[in-house]
């Protein structure tokens, strides 16, 4: 039951993009086309789940026992940067097709605040290992869903006659605002 609450809360009520404001850069940057949005979602899901597991183990088996929890930020970001590099290398070797699809998005992920944000939130929420995995998967789904809906709307938006100074990013933000308003309807579900 607990897991269901974590999943629904992470996907709908506290959506990582629309309610927590994490991962806005890719949300605005790569949401022009549905296709790129799918690629980005795949890469983010991959790295987010692995990064959450690794940082969880590091926090509880190295940082806390040795009393160096203040090194959290430095450790986590290094782990994420290393992971991204590693995932890139492994994918290139093991599955060139997947690498082709995700390739260009992987370097961008190091500076995606959603990854570091979820890793830190997992620690702050005192989840155990299984809950952390569930939490990170749910957040990745939430990110993907927001990105897909948004890119679908933006593809349609290209056909619309928008006032000149509103074109591009400003109108995208207003659409995101409306989308966030729609997601507010889920408040109180959990």
């Amino acid at each position: 039951m607990n897991y269901v609450i974590i999943i629904i809360s992470a996907i709908f009520v506290n959506n990582i993009v629309l309610a927590k404001f994490l991962g806005i850069c890719p949300f605005i940057g790569v949401s022009n086309k549905v296709e790129t949005a799918i690629g980005m979602t795949g890469a983010v899901t991959f790295v987010m789940v692995i990064a959450t597991i690794v940082t969880y183990l590091l926090q509880y088996y190295i940082l806390i026992p040795f009393g160096i929890a203040f090194m959290q930020t430095i450790t986590f970001i290094l782990v994420i940067a290393a992971l991204v590099q590693m995932v890139e290398l492994i994918l290139k070797k093991v599955s060139p097709a997947l690498y082709q699809a995700l390739g260009i998005f992987l370097p961008l992920i190091t500076t995606n605040c959603a990854i570091l944000g979820v890793a830190i939130l997992t620690i702050q929420n005192d989840y155990n290992l299984i809950e952390s995995v569930v939490f990170s998967v749910a957040n990745a789904i939430g990110f993907g869903m927001a990105l897909l809906i948004f890119s679908g709307i933006r593809e349609q938006l290209e056909l619309v006659d928008v006032p000149e100074s509103m074109r591009g990013v400003p109108i995208a933000f207003i659409i995101a605002g409306l989308l966030a308003m729609a997601f507010m309807g889920f408040t109180g579900v959990v």
């Binding site: 309610a19 404001f21 100074s165 990013v169 400003p170 933000f173 605002g177 966030a180 997601f183």
Partner: peptide, 21 residues
């Protein structure tokens, strides 16, 4: 609304528009 999440997006959208002008 402006304290909550949607207001942030909408306010920033309009500010960027003004800046563009």
């Amino acid at each position: 609304l402006f304290i909550l999440a949607p207001g942030a997006f909408i306010a920033l959208g309009y500010l960027i528009m003004i800046m563009n002008k």
